[in-house]
Design a protein around this nucleic acid. Structure first.
Lengths: 328, 328
DNA sequence: TACGGTAATGCTCAATGTGAGCATAAATAA
DNA sequence: TTATTTATGCTCACATTGAGCATTACCGTA
């Protein structure tokens, strides 16, 4: 591949957010470059080579298998990122990189590879875990920092977004009685990035001269724009969870309803009402009792269940109307 | 760009599905190559050039403006398609093409350019318009052809999909009491493509020797995989419509509720209950009465409304819980 | 064996949302 | 004036959802 500026070609990077849940914590598979002194995390990733890979997804699977030894099951494309300036590599000459992000779901597996490990979601996004109430960090750090940023740069380049900055902050972080929308993981990440509060932003040169030190409390950084891709994956999962039985990809074939609930809570980042959750799941026909019981629950034994594959067919998106309404 | 096989680079195509609604019909902007004898439709489209375009979206906007004269408002990325074999160009040497599809919404505009025109959605997808009941074509053509296909190729490469073929057909086309899911535009298109019933499939060589003639009743074909991109756009719009106020991008600033309803129906392809629709829209705080009336309705005059931009902030995704449930 | 701890499970209730249709109001055209 | 056409108001049944009470069944320990 030539480096001459006039022939700046394109490289398509394939990035995987491989998600699994163990001990009630959602994880993502990370790799670290052997020669990286800081050992910063990356998502498994490789360049799409049309000669070697018949489709993008096959390319992704191959790369992931090569780098992590994992053979992926459920895979879904997320988004294609092409901004220059973000995740610019050192020289910034050479081919331009466009990244396609993917979401992959897998059961927990022990990964027996060096430089490959699973990391907890909420290490990267501490403000996203509301399972035990609103995270402290929002009030103590995020809110004041964001509001400060608001005043500093008053509408210099403000008019990019339809909402005013303060409004946007309130809205996204559930301030002043605004409600928390768990799906907006990406939007919140982008807001923090824009505000220059994340290490990635500093690296990309967004933080300009205005160098407040980047705080380690604002989550573990990743290489390039990988944390953004993970945020996209989380947003997608939290959204899709509500109308598609995604979770079953993350569970062993047999499980109790409580285990199921804990996985859903882990992903969505918010606590659920136990009785109502069972009602929903059982009533929706997603699961089928095996007849067996699990004894080691700590209390009364729990029925064991299996996922009903048939539910995939029966579940349409909500709000269906079969016959046309008659009224004029 | 070299043609030598070992250096098969990648070209990123940017494709726009530009949607507008006039006279209760959803349209998409199409271009025809001046030298194409058949005058087949394409979506406005161009190659991403990192040197010229700072972001993918900017690239898209530039290309669209150049080709159609339109300056786009709302734009949203859809999906990135990379299959080889589909939309293979003549020689099939040369750089591999990966297509990024975009959805753009615009008010109706008269386009004063040669080789650019707006075409009706349902000319491309006749089976998707259920506004006046189930389209004939499903029973008379699609169902029998698909079932025939089912028997012909009984599980040769069948196990790609989790559902059996017959099940899949029933499910997607609402056969035998299955309900019609309006959002599955892409899935239905893909099924017809797989079955070799579409002209695009014949061109890509999917129809093998099994040459039943491709039927013009199965919708107007487009170049390459453009009809697939349009199907993706339709799916996305129909889905998003339900939880985001997309329609307002397609309406003039002032409108009656009935006009609004007709646009929603045009997009979703299904009839709505008038009174309930108003209840939803008014109750949801999406609109605001201007105080003016429209007289030329054909009956009683109708109140005129405006879109309330504030609704963007107030509307979270449904199913929100603010406080953690107390029950153990 | 009785007892307290811990979950699992069953059930009720109120509030809200949704599909469907009746009835009335206010224009226009015959 | 009357028929026609649309806009708009309102009701009702039913499904869905959030929340909490009550009961059951296992454990370990006194």
């Amino acid at each position: 591949m030539s480096d001459t500026p006039q022939q700046a070609g394109i490289e398509l990077g394939l990035h995987a957010s491989i998600v699994s849940v163990h001990r009630n914590e959602p994880h993502v598979v990370c790799v670290t470059a052997p020669d990286d002194p800081k050992g910063r995390d990356s998502l498994p990733f490789g360049i799409f080579t049309p000669l070697a890979h018949r489709t993008l997804e096959i390319g992704l699977r191959n790369w992931v298998e090569e780098q992590t030894g994992l053979s992926l099951g459920y895979v879904e494309q997320l988004y294609t990122f092409g901004d220059r300036g973000r995740h610019a590599r050192e020289g910034d000459r050479g081919p331009h990189m466009v990244s396609i992000g993917y979401l992959a779901l897998t059961l927990q597996t022990d990964i027996a590879k060096k430089h490959v490990r699973q990391r907890r979601w909420y290490d990267f996004f501490p403000w996203e875990d509301w399972r035990h109430g609103r995270p402290q960090i929002i009030e103590t750090l995020i809110e004041p920092l964001l509001l400060e940023w608001c005043e500093q740069t008053l509408d210099s380049t403000a008019r990019e977004h339809p909402l005013g900055r303060t409004e946007r902050i309130r809205f996204l972080f559930g301030l002043n009685g605004s409600i928390w929308d768990e799906e907006k993981v990406l939007d919140r990440y982008e807001l923090l990035y824009e505000a220059g509060l994340l290490e990635e932003a500093a690296i990309d040169g967004r933080t300009a001269a205005k160098a407040w030190d980047v705080l380690p409390e604002l989550g573990r950084p990743m290489n390039h724009d990988h944390r953004r891709i993970l945020a996209t994956a989380m947003s997608r999962m939290r959204g899709k969870l509500k109308y598609r039985p995604l979770v079953f990809e993350l569970l062993p074939p047999i499980f109790t309803l409580y285990e199921l609930q804990k996985v859903v809570e882990a992903i969505s980042g918010s606590p659920l009402h136990k009785q109502n959750f069972r009602r929903l799941v059982e009533g929706g026909g997603f699961v089928e009792a095996t007849g067996e019981m699990k004894k080691s629950t700590g209390g009364r034994p729990a029925k064991l269940f299996t996922f009903r594959r048939a539910a995939l067919v029966e579940r349409p998106s909500p709000n269906r109307h079969v016959s046309a309404p008659k009224s004029t």
